[in-house]
Amino acid sequence: MSLDFTARVPARDFDVRFSLATGETIALMGPNGAGKSTLLSVLAGLLRPDCGSATLDGKTLYDDGEWLAPHTRGIALLAQDALLFPHLSVLENVAFGPRCAGVPRSAARKEAHRWLREVDAADLAHRRPVSLSGGQAQRVAVARALAAEPALLLLDEPLAALDISVAPMVRRMLRRVLEGRSAIIVTHDIVDALLLADRVVIVDGGRIVEDGPTRLVLERPRSSFAAGLAGVNLMTGTTTRDGLRTPGGVQLAALRDRDLPAGEEAAAVFSPRAVAVHRLRPTGSPRNVLAVTITDLEQHGGRTTVRADHLSAEITTASAAELDLLPGAEVYFSVKSAEVEIYLR
């Protein structure tokens, strides 16, 4: 499945062109009002652009004088809220898509059971939506969307309405079921982009301002929004028992309740405010000490961001002056293991 998309909606100052490869997942990001919802609405058939065209796996969704109805496009849209049918059981909610496609009731229910197992919700089959938690309802909504066998899955901030304790479980489920599937995920969360997307597309003012592989966009942002979004330090590599090893051999320790499975692809994330800057190699409590070369300094009032390639520290401007920091200076960044979060990819 491949997607080629162009659309102009002058009333919303929207003018976007992009493509999606077979089996690719895009994280669509940008500030409020940037055009993300407009893009999803046009693709789903809920908004007709003034001009443009879109083809999905060779099928024309719209073009001059041609417009496919939403239910004939092979696209499923998953909103923030699960929007399950309250009068149907979980099983019948998931079976709804196949039934609408003409699949016999018994076969549709069999498919529904399969997808409920895929999202770890098989035990919910005979319950009504009113009895489900937010995380359970979202898993069922994902199963219902996938049971329709869409060529393209659109997810509009699928984790935004979930409790912080539930979101990681649903994120892991999404990572599993999206493997090899074409999808576009609207999100404001850098972790969603990092763990779920192959590529990040940044929209601002109705235009694409940045487009590239997830790691590249997050580590070396070129747009102001991406730079603000990527206001965290990100290091990728493989897990060790107590942290992460990068391809360059850098070891990073994290404070965990349990040992990590070794050898898994993962990412370490920590705030620039958690990083201390030293002229001499520090001794004592910090477990993570990184030798870096300063590439840039940015002053914002009483604080200064010290950049060293794709890593950064945020310290007081007084401290930066006391350390006599300048581009090209060799310094040490230190961060406590308790400040480092490890996410399996």
Rank of each mutant, 00 (worst) to 15 (best):
A338N: 06
G97P: 06
V103M: 06
G23N: 08
L39Y: 05
L84Y: 05
M29R: 01
R12L: 15
G97M: 03
L290G: 06
T238C: 10
N93Q: 09
S53W: 10
A291C: 13
V269A: 09
D296K: 03
P129D: 06
P221K: 08
L78R: 04
R12E: 15
W115Y: 14
A161F: 02
V340N: 07
W67C: 09
S2L: 12
L61T: 05
R241H: 14
E24T: 03
R256E: 15
E219I: 07
M173Y: 06
R215H: 13
G134K: 11
L47E: 14
V269F: 14
E265W: 11
G74V: 05
A108K: 07
G228A: 14
L155V: 03
P158I: 11
G237N: 11
R172A: 08
L323Q: 05
L162A: 13
S2Q: 15
L83G: 04
G302L: 13
V201A: 07
A21P: 04
A148R: 05
G248S: 13
N233Q: 13
L155G: 00
P10C: 13
R176A: 11
L83F: 08
A338Q: 11
E322D: 12
V170G: 04
A313C: 13
E149V: 06
S165V: 12
R176Y: 04
A44S: 15
L77A: 01
Y343H: 12
G231R: 10
R245V: 15
P70H: 00
P221M: 10
N233S: 13
E149K: 12
T295P: 10
A137D: 09
L146R: 01
L20D: 08
T6R: 15
A137E: 11
G74H: 10
R181T: 00
L68D: 00
G249H: 14
P247S: 09
D309V: 03
E157Y: 04
G30V: 02
H310L: 06
G206S: 02
V186Y: 08
F333W: 05
A79M: 12
S337L: 08
K36V: 14
S182I: 02
D192A: 00
S334N: 09
A34Y: 00
Q138K: 15
Y343D: 05
S334R: 01
A226D: 01
A230R: 07
I342R: 00
R114C: 00
